[in-house]
């Protein structure tokens, strides 16, 4: 990978999280007939929060201050492995997807501990839901990674996600994997229909209720971490549905220079963000009881992908 591409990836890591959150919110607002916040609103929010002083719950321990930083660190760590601009990742090593999944897990545990540190029953409720939902998406993530690794003959996440040829089987595998990853994204990032980020009823929140008692720079770190994770998840999905991802494997390899391929990929990320915004404006959140069943669809989709891979190799 050229140095220029590294710079592009780092720049994308800084800019794109803000953009995807902005695009989702803007599309949702437009759909609802409102003008919507500026695309870069998240950046201003973070800057404003960093300047604010924090108020801590009087039963809290240093965990409430450490946990948001851990969320941010783990989000950045997962971003290093993900194909941020489609063409490989900043860091790649064998079995890095295990690291990817477990680093997300660590971030989730930190988020939940930070929530429980306040002793609030509402935040406990949110943490319980977050932990329960994670249980149902984790197998899907491994099935997706396993299927793609088996299909691509590689053990590196970014390489496995890239296309290794375009044929009917490959399209089915990648569409199924992308469908699974969309559900994983909805659960991990607490988006509709698993969770409604704009709800105002604590009883029904998942992610938002866990950060009720955080403020100041802790809240800034949590927002930043969530936005980075969102971008990482979107970038993974974009790689799955983009045959140009990875200039060395695409059907028109050589036709698109790495930079053009990266530009296509980033455009696709914005498009996916817009699609999420559109989708979120339409249905209501499903009932909490139904969520585990809904999340199991990710495992089913990933299992389908795995079986198609088996059929392709057998």
């Amino acid at each position: 990978m050229t140095a220029l591409l590294v710079v592009v990836q780092l720049a994308a890591l800084v800019v794109m999280p803000v953009v995807v959150v902005g695009v989702i919110n803007r599309v949702k607002a437009r759909w609802a007939g409102r003008r919507g916040a500026p695309i870069l609103q998240l950046a201003w929010d973070v800057r404003r929060l960093l300047a604010k002083r924090s108020v801590y719950s009087d039963v809290s321990t240093p965990i409430i201050r450490i946990a948001p930083l851990v969320v941010l660190i783990t989000a950045l760590g997962s971003a290093l492995i993900a194909p941020l601009t489609g063409a490989g990742a900043l860091v790649g090593f064998d079995l890095d997807f295990v690291w990817f999944a477990y680093v997300w897990g660590l971030g989730r545990v930190a988020l939940m501990l930070g929530a429980l540190d306040t002793g609030s029953s509402f935040e406990g409720m949110g943490a319980a839901r977050e932990a329960t939902f994670a249980v149902f998406v984790e197998p899907a993530l491994f099935l997706v990674a396993g299927a793609l690794c088996l299909d691509g003959g590689t053990l590196r996440f970014a390489e496995a996600l890239a296309w290794h040829g375009v044929d009917g089987g490959a399209i089915v595998v990648r569409v199924a994997c992308a469908a699974a990853m969309v559900v994983v994204l909805q659960a991990e990032l607490a988006r509709m229909p698993v969770d409604d980020p704009t709800t105002h009823l604590e009883l029904t929140m998942v992610h938002e209720v866990m950060i009720l008692d955080h403020g100041g720079r802790e809240l800034a770190a949590l927002h930043a971490g969530a936005a980075i994770k969102l971008y990482v998840a979107i970038a993974v999905i974009a790689t799955l549905i983009n045959p140009w991802a990875g200039p060395w494997t695409g059907p028109w390899a050589g036709a698109a220079t790495p930079l053009v391929a990266a530009a296509i990929h980033l455009g696709l990320c914005v498009a996916i963000a817009a699609a999420i915004g559109l989708f979120e404006a339409l249905p209501a959140r499903v009932r909490l009881r139904v969520v585990p069943t809904y999340l199991l669809s990710a495992t089913v989709a990933a299992a389908v992908a795995l079986l198609v891979v088996l059929w392709r190799t057998a």
Partner: peptide, 11 residues
């Protein structure tokens, strides 16, 4: 905690 931060009961 950073200087200037405050504590209050959990909401």
């Amino acid at each position: 905690p950073r200087a200037g931060s405050a504590t209050s009961p959990t909401w």
